[in-house]
């Protein structure tokens, strides 16, 4: 594997709450190679978005990175100055958000909003930036780009707006693009187009993409490697095919069971949709020295309740944080 472009080591983000400090990201490590697409999967509140905001250093005020490092081509972003972060954001690392309907500023035309990032980071003049913005609109497949550039966000559909967001994010050809649920708010057909576009742009620009989603099907479609998060911790990581074929953590197994057609064979016994029983633990439980998935797990044993399982290597690139050696969901869920 080539040197990673972005490498996160033992990252811990603590949130100040009324009941004390809570680690919403708890000792998470992962890395991403150039041109790679990494999926981060998990339910709402498992720390996916917080991880991406931590990388951008855009966390809400009550959040604080207490330990670990975030290295972008070797430079540690945890200790970078705010001015340096301004130079990196939108330039070396950029982000596409979940809600295209509200993520664009309603009072500026989309052309202006794309041009702005070019003027900030590349020092282009107004007319150069506008020209380049139109090219970018074309590259994200918006028809009649020179006319659309004068449009305001409310005049565009959700899919179009998300394309504009992608154009803004890729304007300066960043090393890493973080796409936080980029298609959750869109139609399924539009979703397919956006994924296709992201793939194409990755091939053209060589940008690494972190795709954050709650949907295993999206991961299967988009990503090359996947990291599963639960309650602020990484529970499993590996190549997509490997994880889909042989998920080791009971939570990953549950997530896969939630998607009806992910496995090609739909047998009469497997026609029903499944759910993972129970809910995500309350934030006050985060950081306890136990397996946080234990209350929802059917393999639970004493050890799980007394000690946090650490990452263990099960195959060449396959890590999981589970005490169980042989978990086989077919047996249990059938």
């Amino acid at each position: 594997m080539p040197d990673p472009i972005l490498s996160i080591k033992n990252l811990t983000v603590v949130f100040k709450t009324r009941s004390g400090d809570v680690p919403v990201i708890d000792d998470v490590s992962f890395s991403i190679a150039p041109r790679e697409i990494l999926g981060i999967v998990g339910e709402s509140g498992c720390g996916k978005t917080m991880t991406s905001l931590a990388i951008m250093r855009l966390m809400p005020e009550q959040g604080k990175i207490t330990s670990g490092s975030i290295r972008l081509s070797g430079e540690d972003l945890v200790v970078a100055s705010e001015a340096r972060m301004c130079g990196l954001r939108g330039n070396e690392i950029s982000m596409v958000f979940q809600e295209p309907m509200t993520a664009l500023n309603p009072v500026f035309s989309v052309g202006e909003q794309i041009a702005e990032v070019l003027k900030t980071h590349q020092g282009l003049s107004n007319s150069e930036a506008r020209e380049h913005a139109i090219e970018l609109l074309e590259s994200v497949k918006i028809p009649l780009p020179s006319q659309r550039a004068n449009d305001y966000p409310h005049q565009l559909s959700g899919g179009m707006r998300q394309r504009v967001m992608i154009a803004i994010a890729l304007a300066c050809k960043p090393k890493v693009l973080i796409a936080d649920e980029p298609t959750t708010a869109l139609d399924v057909t539009v979703q397919a187009h956006i994924f296709e576009l992201l793939h194409e742009l990755r091939d053209q620009t060589g940008t690494s993409i972190i795709l954050i989603t709650h949907d295993m099907a999206s991961v299967a479609e988009m990503a090359e490697r996947v990291m599963v998060m639960y309650a602020g911790r990484k529970v499993e990581e590996g190549p997509v095919e490997e994880i889909l074929k042989n998920p080791l953590h009971p939570y990953t197994q549950g997530l896969i069971r939630c998607v009806p057609h992910l496995k090609e064979t739909i047998s009469p016994e497997r026609k029903d949709l499944h759910e993972i029983p129970g809910i995500v633990p309350p934030i006050s439980h985060f950081g306890r020295n136990e397996c946080l998935f234990a209350p929802r797990c059917c393999f639970v044993e004493d050890r799980c309740l007394n000690q946090r399982p650490l990452d263990s290597k099960r195959a060449a690139k396959h890590l999981t944080a589970c005490w169980q050696e042989n978990t086989n969901f077919e047996k249990v869920f059938a």
Binding site: L58, R89, G90, T102, N105, P106, T120, I168
Partner: peptide, 15 residues
């Protein structure tokens, strides 16, 4: 607190 302000920050604009 709006999304587009977060977008503006993510673009690398100064405070």
């Amino acid at each position: 607190g709006s999304d587009y302000v977060r977008t503006a920050k993510a673009k690398g604009l100064s405070e």
